[in-house]
Design a protein around this nucleic acid. Structure first.
Lengths: 204, 204
DNA sequence: GTCTATATGACGATAGAC
DNA sequence: GTCTATCGTCATATAGAC
């Protein structure tokens, strides 16, 4: 009796589901600690499988984390397409930053590789990651340019500076500081950081 | 023949000088990489002594890095006292952030412990560090309050949010992103980040 | 593909000669 | 106090049975 196509498909689905679970766990763990601090044991325990099994899915820790980052960029891309087209450009940008902050505050967003970590080196050599990054950056870049031409974002700022400043909110330590203080609710923290990001510290 | 007090003092000076060199190297290395990524071998090589000798000065990696962070807070404190007293409060704050950014861009400022690293745990248990942190924060907090009462910093923002936002500039990844691009000079990067920090992204 | 067990290497810390 | 040499530990990655 030959294995039916359905059975094969089911096995593949299992495989995919397990891989998805691994990526989910990795994403969450990378949101809790730095790349160096996260161990493959952490991931294996979180998923509930043996460490060796991880290596059947991903050849190395670097590859795993890389895939996790690509997945996150995919989620960013998916979010971008849900932003109403009729929103003003600066409101689209605000929506993006708000979404990033909400993910950060829920520990669902890994720290961006802001320094020369092993991860950053791998990411910059990974075509999937770079492609996803360019796709996302292009969309955001358009919004920035539009917002600047409308004057709602300072046209004097180089668009790249605006882009990086928005990206940096996704790993803003201020969120962690304020959360630790316990003095503000999550929603308040998001609004406060949003305000300082777009309006700055000065009175308007 | 007894050792003269002068000789003793000289040996002590040597000791102090070596310790200073160790702290300097640690400070620079912590500016280049994260706490976990920095090794005691790195420090020993940078100073030009054997790793074992480090442990004659500092009992552990944690203690060494802790001392390094305390030393940096000391430099911050020293800088604060050089800021002209007749400057407007908001200009004092700008001067502080500019100084931080210049240190960051020259890799002379360790990343602040923004997440739960082993270092952060140690720092928060170290009275010297906490005391230095409170001293510095108090001075900055006064400037913030004054700037808010003058209306040059938004009085609607909780002072703590302003303080953390300023602190976060000392480890702003935007600086690294822009520096890597090679499109802006160090001085331009400092001014751009200063502008987004105080004025935000929106046009004024 | 999943597991247990292990090889390999890196790093913090120490021993002991000088 | 400085060095060389080494220990103990932990984490990545793999071997090999099932």
């Amino acid at each position: 009796m030959q294995p039916s196509p359905v059975k094969l498909s089911f096995k593949e689905q299992m495989h995919q589901a397990r891989e998805e679970a691994i990526l989910q766990a990795t994403c969450r763990l990378l949101g809790e600690k730095a790349y160096d601090a996260m161990t493959m044991d952490d991931v294996a325990n979180a998923v509930g499988i043996a460490k060796a099994s991880l290596y059947k899915h991903f050849a190395s820790k670097e590859e795993l984390c890389c895939a996790s980052m690509v997945q996150i960029l995919g989620k960013v891309h998916a979010f971008l397409s849900t932003v109403p087209a009729d929103l003003a450009p600066q409101d689209k940008l605000r929506a993006l930053v708000r979404w990033s902050l909400e993910r950060l505050i829920g520990n669902h967003m890994p720290l961006l590789p802001s320094r020369n970590t092993a991860l950053r080196t791998v990411l910059m050599a990974d075509n999937q990651y770079l492609h996803a990054l360019v796709t996302v950056s292009d969309q955001i870049g358009q919004w920035i340019t539009q917002a600047q031409s409308q004057g709602s974002v300072d046209p004097a700022l180089p668009p790249l500076v605006v882009l990086y400043t928005l990206y940096a909110r996704a790993c803003d330590p201020v969120v962690g500081f304020l959360k630790e203080g316990g003095q503000f609710s999550d929603a308040e923290i998001v609004e406060l950081v949003l305000k300082t990001c777009f309006d700055g510290l000065r009175s308007r």
